[in-house]
């Protein structure tokens, strides 16, 4: 069953220099209980998509076009009040560096209890506390740490408490935007494993946004690669890693170092190479300046979606 369906979502930012397009006609869908990873370098629009889905864009962000269908309801058409009931209860989020978002003068448990009682006014305090205790067990924080202050928590614990917070209202979808940046490798791995475990156990759908393709691959069933505001390749994890189609995906994979070396994928590269130095038309592929495989036809025509398997497609003229 489809939980989330995004169609032609375009988001732009109003800046002093004019309007700049951050997300260009993004379309994707997510099944209930599945996880989707969005990868791309900084500034490619991945965070903007996450914020756009929740309608939490900064003031100068404009949703220009598109639909965000969540359980069949277009989130872009409903009122702000209705949207507020959907945030947290249906869709919750884990922000970049969210662990610094705890109020330093209030006990962590208290902050979560408060959040629960805002969304469920009929809950008694005891019931809310009980709820938080259960959540803490889920994210592996000892119960006696419940009413500590944020500074008494380690970085990893703060982040796990954030995950507990995101789970308070039993959402159907969690958007996690770089949930492990600024954490150590070992703690990072623990958080990732926890998210994976909870995702499986509670069958919550997860959108996992990261610049690190390895991290995304560990958590997600499906992977979506973004480049300069455009989605350039979508596919199952195995498909994207074993037979990447878009040249940008290939360059991402070939520059990722794992402990056992670099990825060895099937490269069905087109041999003709052309390196243009100016972009002639804004409709042509944005990756063309760095592309090792582009030929002269890439300069003339806009890239097209090529379906490789029913689940795997890429935005490139050359993929067959």
């Amino acid at each position: 069953m489809t939980l989330l369906e995004v169609e032609n979502l375009s988001i732009a930012y109003q800046t002093r220099g004019g309007v700049s397009l951050a997300v260009d006609a993004a379309s994707f869908s997510l099944e209930k209980g599945k996880s989707l990873g969005i990868v791309g370098e900084s500034g490619c629009g991945k965070t903007t998509i996450g914020m756009g889905l929740l309608r939490l864009l900064p003031e100068n962000g404009i949703i220009q076009d598109g639909k965000v269908l969540f359980e069949g309801q277009d989130l872009l058409q409903i009122s702000e009040d209705e949207m507020r009931t959907i945030r947290w209860k249906k869709i919750s989020m884990i922000f970049q560096a969210a662990m610094n978002a705890w109020n330093p003068v209030q006990r962590v448990g208290e902050q979560i209890v408060e959040a629960i009682r805002i969304h469920y006014p009929d809950y008694s305090r005891d019931r809310a506390v009980k709820e938080v205790e259960d959540l803490y067990q889920l994210v592996d924080i000892p119960r006696n740490r419940l009413f500590n202050y944020p500074h008494e928590y380690s970085g990893g614990m703060k982040q796990r408490a954030i995950i507990a917070m995101a789970l308070t209202c039993h959402p159907d979808l969690i958007i996690a935007d770089e949930p492990t940046t600024a954490l150590d490798v070992i703690v990072q791995d623990q958080i990732i494993q926890k998210i994976k475990e909870i995702q499986k156990e509670l069958s919550i759908a997860v959108i996992f946004i990261s610049h690190d393709i390895g991290m995304v691959a560990e958590v997600c069933h499906d992977i979506m690669v973004m480049y300069k505001g455009k989605i350039v390749e979508v596919g199952k994890r195995e498909e994207v890693f074993v037979t990447p189609m878009h040249p940008y995906t290939k360059s991402l994979l070939s520059s990722y170092l794992t402990l056992d070396g670099v990825f060895d994928f099937e490269d069905k590269a087109n041999e003709t190479v052309c390196q243009p130095d100016t972009i002639i038309d804004s409709h042509i592929c944005g990756y063309i300046q760095h592309c090792q495989e582009a030929d002269s036809s890439c300069l003339r025509e806009a890239p097209r979606w090529q379906e490789i398997t029913p689940t795997h497609k890429a935005l490139c003229r050359l993929c067959k």
Binding site: V185, I186, Q188, D189, Q190, G214, M215, A217, E218, R237, E238, F241, V242, L257, T258, L259, D260, G261, V262, F263, D264, F265
Partner: peptide, 18 residues
């Protein structure tokens, strides 16, 4: 050992030494 254990694993993909 913990550090090595925490490295992402890619059982679904092939890797070679660079």
């Amino acid at each position: 050992r913990a550090l090595i254990r925490a490295q992402p694993k890619f059982s679904f993909a092939k890797t070679t030494r660079p």
